[in-house]
Amino acid sequence: MTAVGDIVAERSVHLTRASLVRYAGASGDFNPIHFSDHVASAVGLPGVLAHGMLTMGLAVETIVPWLGDAGRILEYGVRFKNPVVVDPESGAELRIVAKVGAIDARGARVDLTVTHGETTVLVKAHVLVRLP
């Protein structure tokens, strides 16, 4: 039985520049801020950034093993708070924790905490899931 406050999933994901290239190919998002240090710095960014949709997708994917079926996801939304800077040598480590925030007649609201180091990346990251 799932209860409010339960941590239902957690994981770390290591991103590299190669991860960004693969995602760009899959998504068609070839914005150079996701692969070029020169372009990123020219537009005032602290470095090459992970795609927001990649970060969002990795976050929600964390709960799929717990759900057993991604089709149980009814709604998903986030706000982007901080970018994920992917270092050319060390990459970037995302930490994702999924915790049940509420349960009602529609299902369970799972709150995702997504951090990169000490920095919160996504806020108001909520997934509404249908309970079995």
Rank of each mutant, 00 (worst) to 15 (best):
L122H: 06
L45A: 11
V21G: 09
A3V: 14
G68Y: 12
P46N: 08
I7T: 11
W66I: 07
V43L: 08
V129H: 00
A9Y: 01
R106F: 06
L54S: 12
A102H: 12
V64T: 03
E93K: 05
L128F: 12
G71P: 07
G52L: 06
A108H: 05
A9G: 10
L67N: 09
T62P: 00
A105M: 09
P46T: 11
T119Y: 04
S27E: 09
S27F: 12
G25P: 08
V86C: 03
S27Q: 11
T16G: 09
V86F: 00
V60G: 01
V110L: 01
F35S: 14
H51D: 03
L45D: 10
W66V: 08
E89M: 15
V13M: 01
V123L: 12
I96N: 00
L67K: 13
M56E: 10
L128G: 04
L131K: 09
G101Q: 13
E10K: 12
V127Y: 04
A40G: 08
P83G: 15
A108P: 09
V97Q: 11
I103C: 02
G107M: 11
S36K: 06
W66Q: 11
M1C: 07
Y76S: 08
M53G: 11
V21E: 12
V123T: 14
L131R: 14
A26G: 07
S12T: 14
D104W: 13
D87Q: 03
A125C: 15
I63W: 02
V123F: 05
F30G: 13
G52M: 07
V110G: 01
E118A: 02
V4T: 04
V114A: 10
L15W: 10
R106Y: 06
I73L: 02
D111A: 13
S41E: 08
T119H: 04
L131Q: 11
P88A: 09
A3I: 08
S36W: 07
R17A: 02
L45Y: 10
T2M: 13
V8Y: 01
A105E: 13
A98V: 00
S36I: 05
G52E: 08
V97K: 13
E75D: 10
A9V: 05
P46V: 10
E93T: 14
G28D: 04
A98S: 00
V78R: 14
P65L: 09
F30C: 12
G117Y: 12
S12R: 14
I7R: 11
L94C: 00
V97W: 04
K81P: 05
A42H: 15
A105G: 07
L67V: 11
A9C: 11
F35I: 13
D37R: 14
G28P: 11
T55R: 04
D37I: 13
S36H: 07
V100T: 02
T62E: 00
S36Q: 06
R17N: 02
G68S: 02
V110D: 01
D29N: 02
G5P: 13
V129Y: 00
L122K: 01
A108Q: 07
S19V: 09
H116D: 12
P46G: 09
K99F: 03
D111I: 12
R95S: 13
P46H: 05
G57C: 03
V48L: 04
P32I: 04
M56G: 14
S36R: 06
E89S: 15
V127Q: 04
L74Y: 08
L94N: 02
